[in-house]
Computed example of a mutant assay.
Amino acid sequence: MPARPPMGRDHGGIQALDRAFLILDVIADAGGEAKLTEIAASAGLNVSTCHHLISTLHNWGYVSRGINSRSYVLGSRILHLSAACLRQVDLPRRAQSFVDRLNDQTREAVQLAIMQDTNLVHILRREARHAVRVEAGFGGNANAAHATATGKAILAWLPPTELDRIVADKGLTAFTPNTITDIEKLKEHLRLVRRNGFSIDREEYRPGVICLGAALRDHAGAVVGSISVSAPAFRSTPDYIEQMKVHLIAAADELSVELGAPGAILRAPVKTIAAE
């Protein structure tokens, strides 16, 4: 277990927050469940102060009542934070073989992305194997979720209020003349993404680049990220895009199954796209 940070205003902290986090640590150290008096004693707090802090943590879902309401346990919100942390750390490792396979099959650039709050973050990438290839860079642009296939594959499945929050924070920057910069047009486009099961960026983020994306789901059916494949526009004929799409959706479905997604549809991939 990592050491606890120093507490108190003298160390640049806020006392109430210090105490709240200490209470969570105390419950965790006790095996995930402890009585109020035990928590107060371990945290060095009087029972009344401890109870007020626990009430606030309870309101936020970080603490819940234990059996017969005689104790307190860590709440479900802790699991939410834990899942987000594990997803960021564990997703690239679990996705590695699928990203490599998609790169082998299409010979094009493949990326794995997640949303961190309102930021689109690319966390894994494989470069194209063609002599002429897309040079999109690893990091991408945190403001470009609305203009990229990786971003739109995630945005399409977010609650409307969350989509509005992201757009309010990041805006709808026009990266190319093809970028969607109207919120209502974006929402209509995302409805098509949901219906089709994949997203497409037709030179919306970078001129001369076509990108297809598909959402990744976890055991709860929640979208946890996306995977995409990018190709130069000159190579992206309708047949070529269709081949990339089949490989992409197969990889996304199988990776989602690996992540525990219920009812993911597996599709048989077509033959590997030929080299130039």
Rank of each mutant, 00 (worst) to 15 (best):
A156P: 00
H130E: 10
N68G: 09
I14K: 15
R133I: 02
R125D: 09
V134A: 10
M1I: 07
L266R: 09
T176A: 05
E184V: 03
K245F: 05
N178E: 12
P238K: 07
N178L: 01
L190Q: 03
V73Y: 00
E108A: 00
E204P: 00
I14E: 15
Y72A: 07
D100I: 07
T106R: 03
L216Q: 09
A261Q: 02
A28Q: 08
G66T: 06
A231C: 04
A28Y: 05
A274Y: 04
D182C: 02
R217L: 07
E38A: 08
G197P: 01
R267F: 05
L124Q: 14
D100H: 02
M7N: 04
M7W: 00
Y205A: 04
V121K: 11
P92E: 06
F138P: 09
I241P: 01
Q15A: 14
I114E: 10
T37Y: 05
I180V: 13
P6A: 11
A168V: 01
D10S: 09
T176S: 03
G137W: 02
N46P: 03
R206D: 07
I166Q: 01
E258R: 14
L79C: 08
R125G: 11
C211A: 13
A251L: 06
I23V: 13
I180S: 06
V47Q: 15
